[in-house]
Design a protein around this nucleic acid. Structure first.
Lengths: 154, 154
DNA sequence: TCGTTTCGACAACCTTGTTGTCCATCAAAT
DNA sequence: ATTTGATGGACAACAAGGTTGTCGAAACGA
């Protein structure tokens, strides 16, 4: 009984959602409510060097306006600080705050814990293999998050 | 270099998106434009027995109002037919039309083709193993699509 | 210096969800 | 048989997150 292509898609989506739902729920329980995967992605991109709204938009494949809205939320909630750029009066330099790093660390910890239970379920070597194969298939596409919007509602 | 939990999430999302983007693009090229993954999920649920808006909402974990909106679109585009239920005057019985089955078949064919290229890339046995392991991890959660909304924008 | 590009902001709008409310209808208990 | 409660579907108001278009200010390049 070979599974169909649609089932494969559902499996991948299911896996992603398992991880992300766990993270969102746990994060909310730890006081980071209203923190969604999009925010996590944005934070990661900012840490990775996306230090302006336009830049963030390019890196996360959304319009700069959409990026600006996300940033506004993150700033309002204290995860990101925006300060005027001394070298370019048009820009506002973005920085992840201590609280921003806090939520990222917490999120990573939770994901790591789920991954650990997965490792126990199917075996550490098997999980590593699964990851390696996925990486081979998806490759670089996974690194630049092409459309975080598709995970927005989670 | 063990990958982090966040990377794993990204890999899963990336894989899902690869499949779904291919399907959406190809489907549009074949004349099924404005057909999105949510619609596919809804169609599948209807075929599986969700024959009313409330029912569909329950099965896809969205409000009945949201389900009704999706149905309205599907009916308008000819993928689903709604007829009054002879046994219950409150309900409108839903049925997937011939065109609905057509788009489902086309979608499945496209996904199958992508899956085929994947099989060539990492090996048929390896892909089967990957699927089996994912199934073991995600299990039943993949069968009832918990929140198709999270894939809405794709 | 003067076009051109880029940045951030504002506005209008779309999509897809959400709640809340409402009425008609069914079903079950008295 | 009637009342009471649950359910189905519709309508309205709204939220989140995305889009495009426009704009002025600032930077940059010829």
């Amino acid at each position: 009984m070979s599974r169909s292509g649609a089932d494969l898609a559902l499996l991948l989506l299911g896996g992603y959602r398992s991880l992300v739902d766990a993270a969102t729920t746990e994060l909310a329980a730890r006081g980071f409510d209203d923190f969604k995967p999009v925010h996590e992605f944005a934070l990661r991109a900012i840490v990775a060097g996306a230090d302006s709204a336009s830049d963030l938009g390019r890196r996360t494949a959304v319009s700069k306006q959409a990026a600006a809205k996300t940033i506004a939320v993150l700033v309002e909630r204290g995860y990101v600080a925006a300060s005027p750029d001394p070298d370019d009066a048009r820009r506002k330099r973005l920085e992840v705050t201590a609280r921003g790093f806090e939520v990222m660390d917490a999120g990573e910890g939770i994901l790591e814990k789920v991954r650990e239970t997965w490792a126990k379920q199917i075996g550490r070597a098997e999980l590593a293999e699964l990851e390696a194969r996925l990486a081979a298939l998806v490759g670089d596409a996974a690194i630049r998050i092409d459309a975080p919007g598709s995970a927005a509602s989670a």
